[in-house]
Nucleic acid binder design. Structure first.
Length: 154
DNA sequence: GCCAACGTTGGC
DNA sequence: GCCAACGTTGGC
């Protein structure tokens, strides 16, 4: 099983939004970066776990654990001219962008703030804290996964 | 709101 | 294929 971290701006899609969905499941659409797409399309497997991360907000950090409940399939928002994620270069016959489905496993007992993650020496090599990194879908090692869950208890 | 860092675009 | 200009990300 692989571990991941998925960023979302809570003003666009927050953990509260996911909790409110039927089966607490929704698709993770709008990824428009090749590296992030390739992780999703080529490496994410059903049953993988991911941290749900709130970005571009007052207190950026990890808020929940989700499970990949459906592997990559075409991101239809790319075909929709009314969608903010519309990409005229993508169409149903030859989709350029993909999404997965995520299901809530559980909220974390508290927000694990980015600022704390940065201070944890065990997490210094996470892509999340690397200078200039803007990846919205990134792999997390088993060691990093455990380190973040350990922080939850403190 | 600022701005550094990064990715993409398009002229040449 | 280079690279300047531009748009976006995302922390602060």
């Amino acid at each position: 099983m692989n571990y991941w971290l998925l960023k979302s701006e809570p003003t666009a899609f927050s953990i509260d939004d996911l909790v409110a969905r039927p089966q607490q499941t929704d698709h993770w659409d709008g990824v428009r970066n090749y590296q992030a797409r390739n992780f999703m399309r080529d490496q994410m497997r059903r049953g993988d776990r991911a941290f749900f991360y709130h970005s571009s907000c007052k207190e950026p950090g990890v808020v929940a654990i989700v499970e990949i409940s459906r592997e990559a399939y075409p991101d239809t928002t790319g075909f929709d001219p009314k969608s903010p994620h519309f990409d005229p270069k993508s169409d149903a016959a030859n989709p350029k962008w993909f999404m997965v489905d995520v299901r809530l496993v559980r909220r974390l007992r508290r927000l694990i703030r980015l600022e704390e993650i940065k201070r944890n020496p065990a997490l210094g090599n996470m892509a999340l804290v690397q200078r200039g990194s803007r990846l919205s879908v990134m792999p997390v090692t088993a060691a990093q996964w455990k380190a973040i869950l350990r922080m939850e208890a403190h």
